[in-house]
Nucleic acid binder design. Structure first.
Length: 253
DNA sequence: TTCCAGTTGA
DNA sequence: TCAACGGGAA
């Protein structure tokens, strides 16, 4: 390809109006997403672990195999041989790590809460989060997914899709970490479980369909009207003040 | 064959 | 900060 230098979008201050507009636009475009797609709270947690760095399609296969094996109960996860868990969840990838994480959660849940979701989620949100993060294999996204989708706490889940979309739109810096990104959303979107649930799900759909890592489909994206003007983009030696860099990249395909 | 997506441990 | 962890889809 010719010389082409894409500049990060002009950073814009995120406002409550901006976030509300993004949320409303995506909801209008995609409709309610009805997350989390699971039958029980334990199944939400199992799914949250299995979907780490993995597409949901593969997780569904693994969850179905666990269900068929009668392993969608924390006691069953506790008692089953590790190798049995591994073979069930193989389609979800990272199966050795994740089998251990499933075990780790099951012990945590039994030992500290007697297998009671009521007791686990009766804790204050911050305390519950800290306890979940103490489980080996639980990072911030997994913990927050459990808090939001199983515990119904008003906490926003940040993932790769969220960061990609928000940074391409200049609402967070390209290198914004998990906490920074989450704090921005918490600051500008009302702390309601239903809103955080839906917004995260809508961002995932947007990330998969339009805001892809390579060759983003900006021209048909519902958020296209809100893309910031990019910095100067150098294309084939000429300096042009173009629309947002992502659009420029798309047109350059 | 490359690409994608979280967490750990060094 | 970065390799390792694994599979399925593009």
């Amino acid at each position: 390809m010719e010389t082409m230098r894409a500049i990060a979008p002009e950073p814009r201050p995120a406002t409550s109006e901006t976030l509300a507009t993004y949320y409303g636009t995506l909801l209008q475009h995609f409709g309610p997403q009805h997350w989390w797609p699971a039958r029980t709270r334990l199944e939400v947690i199992v799914g949250a672990i299995l979907t780490q760095n993995t597409s949901w399609r593969n997780v569904e296969v693994a969850v179905a195999r666990l269900r068929r094996a009668g392993l969608l109960q924390h006691r069953a996860l506790l008692n089953a041989p590790l190798s049995r868990l591994e073979s069930c969840i193989r389609p979800a990838g990272y199966y050795r790590q994740k089998a251990r994480t499933l075990k780790a959660f099951a012990s945590f849940f039994e030992d500290q809460f007697g297998g009671s979701f009521h007791r686990l989620f009766h804790l204050p949100m911050g305390e519950c989060r800290a306890r979940l993060l103490s489980i080996k294999g639980f990072g911030p996204e997994t913990a927050d997914s459990v808090l939001l989708y199983a515990g119904k706490f008003p906490i926003f889940v940040v993932d790769a899709y969220t960061r990609r979309i928000l940074s391409r739109h200049g609402l967070v810096p390209p290198d914004a970490d998990y906490a920074t990104t989450q704090a921005m959303v918490h600051q500008h979107l009302k702390p309601e479980t239903k809103v955080y649930n839906e917004f995260h799900a809508l961002l995932v759909e947007t990330g998969k369909t339009y805001c892809r890592p390579q060759q983003p489909r900006c021209s048909s994206c519902p958020l296209r009207p809100f893309l910031p003007v990019a910095g100067p983009v150098l294309v084939a030696g000429s300096l042009a003040n173009s629309p947002a860099w992502a659009l420029a990249a798309e047109e350059a395909e």
